[in-house]
Each structure stands twice: as C-alpha cells, then as structure tokens.
Design a protein around this nucleic acid. Structure first.
Lengths: 218, 218
DNA sequence: TTGCCATGTGACACATCTGTCATATGACAA
DNA sequence: TTGTCATATGACAGATGTGTCACATGGCAA
C-alpha cells in the first residue's frame, strides 16, 4: 500500500505518477521496469518516490488496482445483468467489453494482458493476493461468474450434463482469452466499423453445439 | 551461434554448461537469468564463457535448440504416423506426448513452457526467428500439422464445413495448450498410474461434437 | 628444447539499479 | 517573526551485472 504521503498528493500529481508507472510497466514488464525511469518521466525526485511508495512492488500494486478499476467500468454493465444472460451471451458480452476496454484504454489494457508473467519468486504469490484483492473489491471473480452462468445454462437444459462443471469452466475460460485475442486482432487491423463480431459468433457456436444436450443421446 | 571454441569442447563439458544454463533460464527466465550464476555453477571462468558464446542471447538460443531437439524425440513417433490420425486422435496423442516429455525431462519442459514471455524488445523478434529455425530443422510446424489434420477430417466428413479452417485452427491450438495444462496437473498431482486420460477425452468430445457435421442441419 | 597457438583466467571498467539519509524548502500556526 | 512539521531533494553506498583485456597455461609440432 502506498504511504500516506502519496495519498495526500494533489490528484493531478498522483495521476501523472501512476500514468508514467503504467507506461513503464506496460513497456518493460515488472522485472525490467525501472524506478529510475518512472521518476524521470514523472518529474519527481528519487527521495520523493520512496516517500510515496515502499518499493517497486508497492507502486505496481497500485497500478494494478487502478487498471482493474478502469476495466470494471467496462464490465459492470454486463455484470449487472449477469442473471439474465445464458452462458453464451455472457461470454460474448464479456469478450466484446474486454476488447472495447483495450481499444479505448490501450495503456492499461497492455499491462493487464501479459504482465502476469514475472519470474521473481515472490511475484507469483504477490499476483495471487493481488487478484484476491481485486475480486474482493468487486465482489466477483471470473470463476464464480462463469460457474454461475454454467449452472444456469445447465438448469435451462442448454448444456448437456454429461460434462463436469470443471471441464466446462476450463473450456470456457480459455476460449474467452482466445476469442478476446482474435477479436482484438480483428478490431485493430480492420478499419471497418465496430459491428463485426462474426469471429466470436463462430467460435461460440462450436462451443454451443459441443455442449448441447442433443449429444447426450448420440 | 556459439563460437568454434565451444563446439570444440569435450561433450561432457558442453553438457554441463548447457545443463546449468537450462536450470538458470528455467528458474529466472531470460531477462533475469545471470551469466554470473551460469559460470559459477558450471565451474568455468568469465573469460571462457565469452570465448564460447557471444552473449546471453547466444547461449539461450543454443539452449532452446537443445530443448526442441529433446522434445522432438517424444513427438516424432506421433508425427511419423500423422497421416493415419484424424484430428482428434492427433490432438490426444500430441497432448499426451508433450506431457510425458514434461514428466521425464522437467527442466527442459519448464523453459519451453513459459519462457516465451520476455519484454526485451529484441527478444520477440529473436524468438520468432528461433521458432522458424526449429520448424525448419524438423520440417514441420504446429500450424501445418494441424491444418493438414483438419483438412483430412474435413475430407472424411468428421468435421462440418460450416466453420473456417482458421477458426478451427485457433480453437484447436488453444485447446492443445489447455489440455496439456490440465493433463499435466492431473499427472503431477495424482500418484495414480499413467492411464487416466479422461480429462483429454472429455474435452475432446466437446470439440468433436462442436465440430461434427450433424450440427449443419440443426 | 623451443616456440606457437588454442584455450583458460579473473581483475577491471563501466553501467544500472535500489534504498537511505542529511539537508533544504515552504506552508502554516503561534 | 519564529518554530514546527510535512514534504522534496539528490548525493551516496552497496549490490549486481556485462563485456574486455592483458596475461597464464598447456599441448603439440618443429
């Protein structure tokens, strides 16, 4: 957690520092990110930095919280209606919102995407507790979200009960990632308007048929 | 490429150095790996190291080639019969072999698994050319392998032609990763014998039904 | 034996980074 | 005005890392 000194800072200064830190972490990843460069870019002195934060991990945590807060703004409209969605609609909406977040806030997006791979031993446990914190703040986790949607769809008979929820969940989560990646590539390469989500539709229809009850008797 | 001096070395010494380098890269990843530690562990001097290799990238490349050579030993039995397999059998065999490789050569496995995430800018292009090199040496690439299998299965009517090959390929490759991960976790946590591949079977059957022609008319 | 050449060695120069500390600044209260 | 306290600063110590270079060693050929 940042020190009180940082919290007391005028919002503008806080924003600058966090922004520069985001750029640094996004560009170099955690391990290679340099406090040196962050303070140079932010225009604060070395001494000040250590009066704001304990160390690199500390500011990194703050950056992660900021990013997750921003991302939640995009996801919340979907989450609020989560009871209404079946699994497939939920997946589609989540993918679209995640990518829209990336398009409109690329700096934040970049970090969340592939910063998750540090080799510092302490880092893995730190990231785990980070996730816990984020889930706690937002009263939600991907697992609980998707498990609920899966159970809903099971109850509705949209999904065959021949598969275990664990396997469906794994399947689901890995597809979310892949669909996001493909949709992202599609959205960033095309100059076309926003509307073409045919890639998501196509991948989801494979999933839908794969999980459909009709297989049960085949 | 390593210098001639390294190539001239007695095999035992070469093995020691590459082994220690593998441990180092596996433990710390490329960015945080230290030549210092590699030479300490290998018992060679700093000067010698630079007479063997240009720099860290150089020895890393050699390590990657060694790993891919080892992995190919596991995959080759499958690849030799690739024409005989349909997509689903091929996927199953590839996953099983990849995990068996991991079980029997964990050090090598670890590096291949998640070392692919360096942030050094040059690194991304380096890794790309590395892959090219490996594919060239083995006259194969995952893409070509799976595309062929998909086309075979399409020809046999096992797969509906309502989906594009690109989407099926994406689907396939991401599932290979996930199935490997799950099967790996299963194999490393259980003390049970080797035989239980039910997780793979379950995930593949979702894929099989998802891609099956019968959906076409539904 | 002598001389040559491939190989081995570690001290060294230079760079980068982190975290600390003595000191400066500036605002506000007494 | 003066004293106090939060904040700001950058020089500094200490760690770690890379790549080089002048010199040592040891085997082999003449």
């Amino acid at each position: 957690m940042p020190k009180q000194t940082f919290i007391n800072l005028p919002q503008e200064k806080k924003d600058t520092i966090l922004h520069e830190a985001m750029l640094e972490f996004g560009h170099y990843g955690f391990d290679l990110a340099s406090i040196q460069r962050i303070i140079e870019q932010s225009g604060i002195s070395r001494g000040s930095f250590y009066q704001y934060f304990e160390d690199k991990t500390d500011i990194f945590g703050e950056v992660m919280l900021e990013i997750s807060a921003r991302k939640m703004k995009y996801l919340n409209p979907v989450l609020e209606k989560k009871e209404e969605y079946g699994l497939f609609e939920l997946l589609k909406e989540m993918v679209k919102k995640a990518v829209h977040f990336g398009l409109e806030d690329p700096v934040a997006f970049q970090i969340g995407k592939d910063l998750i791979s540090s080799k510092t031993l302490d880092m893995k446990t730190f990231l785990e507790s980070m996730k816990e914190e984020v889930y706690k703040r937002n009263h939600i986790s991907p697992e609980s979200l998707y498990v609920k949607a899966i159970e809903n769809s099971l109850a509705r008979g949209e999904i065959s009960n021949q598969y275990s929820v664990e396997v469906i969940l794994s399947y689901t989560m890995v597809l979310v990632d892949k669909m996001s990646e493909l949709y992202w590539m599609h959205m960033t390469r095309q100059t076309k308007p926003d509307k073409d989500d045919s890639i998501i539709t196509e991948m989801l229809s494979i999933l839908r048929y794969g999980l459909s009850s009709s297989n049960k008797t085949s």
